[in-house]
């Protein structure tokens, strides 16, 4: 019989590996290869190809490196916290299932679905002095006729205002994608287990704190780590709003040196140097978060 013969060499224990193999090959070709390439490059002199740490030194000496680092740091730490809290609140709201919650959920998803360029278009047209936001304020009577607020700032605007604006715009864009994960996690919690909390004397807040959130922990870790990883890589919305170099952030520097000042002779060194440094920061932050939040311990227990 064909079937049995085949079964002998096509061992069932091998099947999962065969199914997973394409992914591994794919990652090797189109993820590992570029990663290795860029890491090697970052240790090489762009001209001679000799081993050097000069690229990193150049980056660290870049006058925009530390501003970019701190801007990124501030944006990430505030926005991840803010987005998580708001997304959690919203997902608990949607979990209640009120009349119209389905439509509400869909509307909430729209900012997530929007392409970054569309988001850029929305806020660029909204935040300019003659944009729709000021127009709306005039129509509402909040702003006097003909007056305007310079949301995007003037050269003298303090930096924290610009950062606040970036954080708010980013929150508008990103909260839905955090919320989606949390809603899914909530909906997958067994209902009775939560109800048991109420029956045995819990108020909403106690049940939330002692039962819902602990059970949601793996979901929360997933949502936060994904968010953390992409928050550190913020740049496009900033460039669309402010252009290059006005509010430097780490990834923006990579694109800046790769696209905007290609001709510059330090550009290749800067590009690879920044790339590897950013990758290092993202990985370190994600692993640190997972470690601190106890995701690895859970791995061992189960």
């Amino acid at each position: 019989m064909m079937g049995t013969k085949r079964a002998r060499w096509f061992s069932p224990t091998l099947t999962p590996y065969l199914l997973v193999l394409p992914v591994l090959l794919y990652y090797a070709a189109f993820w590992l290869q570029p990663v290795v390439t860029v890491v090697i490059q970052s240790f090489r002199d762009p001209v001679t190809g000799a081993f050097t740490l000069n690229n990193f030194a150049l980056v660290l000496q870049d006058k925009d490196f530390w501003p970019a680092f701190w801007n990124t740091f501030i944006i990430v730490s505030i926005s991840v916290a803010l987005e998580f809290v708001v997304a959690l609140a919203l997902s608990l709201l949607i979990y209640r299932r009120f009349w119209g919650s389905g439509i509400f959920f869909f509307l909430m998803l729209i900012p997530m679905a929007l392409p970054p360029v569309a988001t850029g278009a929305i806020w660029k047209t909204g935040l300019t002095a003659h944009g729709w936001l000021n127009s709306l304020l005039i129509h509402l009577g909040v702003l006097a006729e003909g007056k305007k607020i310079y949301w995007l700032g003037t050269p003298r605007t303090p930096k924290w205002q610009l950062l606040t604006l970036i954080i708010l715009v980013d929150a508008w864009t990103v909260i839905p994608s955090v919320m989606v994960i949390l809603v899914a996690g909530l909906q997958n919690l067994p209902r009775e287990v939560i109800e048991a909390g109420y029956v045995f004397g819990g108020t909403y807040w106690r049940v939330l704190r002692d039962i819902i959130l602990p059970m949601l922990r793996p979901t929360i870790q997933t949502a936060v780590v994904l968010r953390l990883i992409s928050a550190i890589q913020i740049w496009l919305i900033i460039v669309l709003l402010f252009g290059f170099s006005r509010v430097p952030v780490l990834v923006e520097r990579i694109v800046y040196y790769h696209e905007e000042v290609r001709g510059l002779d330090i550009a290749p060194a800067m590009t690879t140097g920044y790339t590897v440094i950013v990758a290092f920061i993202v990985s370190a932050a994600a692993l640190l978060y997972l470690y601190l939040s106890g995701a690895f311990e859970g791995e061992k227990a189960s």
Partner: peptide
Amino acid sequence: PPRARNVSMVFQNYAVWPHMTVYENIAYP
């Protein structure tokens, strides 16, 4: 509300709290 009724319930799927030990499960209420 349920908490003010002084009833207790055994659910079909037990609904024990998975993140608490047996001791904590009994002690929490």
